[in-house]
Amino acid sequence: MRWERFFEDLEHQLDSEWEAERAVLDSEAERLRMSRLTLRDRLAVLAEESDEVAIDLAGPAATLRGPLTGVGADWCSLELGADAHGALVPLRAITAVGAARPALTRSTRPVGAAGITCRMTLGFVLRDAARRRGAVRVHTVAGGAHTGTIDRAGADHFDLALHDADVPRRDTAVAGLRVIPFSTVTWVQLVGIGI
């Protein structure tokens, strides 16, 4: 009888130690998972649910508000409303992201399967905008904004033909040309292009 109680006590003690060790391992695994979580990963979860976000940008104080509509390799897109159209934001221009507490908590969950959009770079998206020939308004870190049509996009810059947003890009309407490095762009308002 004493031996049975002795073995039961040992078994309970081993079970308790095993549970404590497993809890430590689970905590460490969660810390490791969180250490690998990127801003892009969190934005991708918010975009899956089309969560409303507030994105603070570098440069002169600017905050964009709206539902996230997509996330690429180095950019995200928001719907700003019917009048303001869509916005394309380079991730490196983001200084802070705000959202409802449940959405931010949910954004720390493991990311689902990645689609092709996650591999599209800012250059890829701007080359598509050049192909579509719609008007854009480019906001820069210096606080300026240039309106026109993207003529071509390179590896780290793009050419913008300056003209009014409501006028098609014609040589007679072009007031000038700008070569704009990606590194100076805080966001691109997609005036004549749907996202």
Rank of each mutant, 00 (worst) to 15 (best):
L78C: 00
L78F: 03
R101S: 04
F6R: 13
G59F: 04
P110C: 09
A173T: 10
T69V: 15
A165H: 01
A62M: 11
A62E: 12
D56K: 15
A100P: 06
W3T: 15
P90T: 02
V138F: 09
G66S: 06
R170I: 01
L37Y: 01
P181C: 09
E21S: 07
T38M: 12
I116P: 02
L43W: 05
T38E: 10
V191G: 03
S107Q: 04
V125F: 00
T105Y: 08
V141I: 08
L68D: 01
R178N: 00
G86C: 05
G176R: 12
S50R: 14
G176Q: 06
S27M: 09
R42C: 01
R152A: 11
S16G: 14
R5Q: 10
R42Q: 11
T63G: 02
L14V: 12
T63A: 06
A153M: 05
D83E: 15
A153V: 06
T105E: 15
T63K: 05
I193W: 02
T172S: 15
L25I: 11
R119W: 05
V167I: 11
L57I: 03
H139F: 08
T172E: 14
G148Q: 06
L37H: 10
V179Y: 04
E30M: 07
Q13L: 13
L162K: 01
E4D: 08
V71R: 02
L78E: 00
R106N: 11
L160W: 02
I116F: 00
R33L: 04
V111K: 07
R92S: 15
G72H: 07
T121M: 11
T95I: 05
S107M: 03
V185D: 03
W75Q: 01
R109E: 14
A29I: 07
R170M: 04
A20E: 03
F7N: 05
G194T: 07
D26Q: 07
D51C: 12
C76R: 02
A96K: 13
C118V: 15
S77V: 01
D128E: 15
P181E: 10
G194A: 13
A142T: 08
A142H: 08
P60H: 13
S35C: 03
R40K: 14
R92T: 15
E48R: 15
V97M: 11
I94Y: 11
E8A: 14
A54D: 12
E79T: 09
G86M: 08
C76G: 06
L10P: 00
L122Y: 03
L14M: 13
T108A: 13
A73F: 12
F6W: 12
D51E: 09
G154Q: 03
V136G: 09
H157M: 01
A161T: 02
R33I: 00
E4K: 13
E48Q: 15
A129C: 14
R152H: 13
R109D: 05
S107D: 01
F182V: 01
W75S: 10
D56Y: 04
Q189Y: 05
L64D: 01
D41E: 08
L162E: 03
H12F: 15
L104A: 05
W3N: 12
R36T: 07
F7V: 02
A73E: 10
R101F: 02
R109M: 08
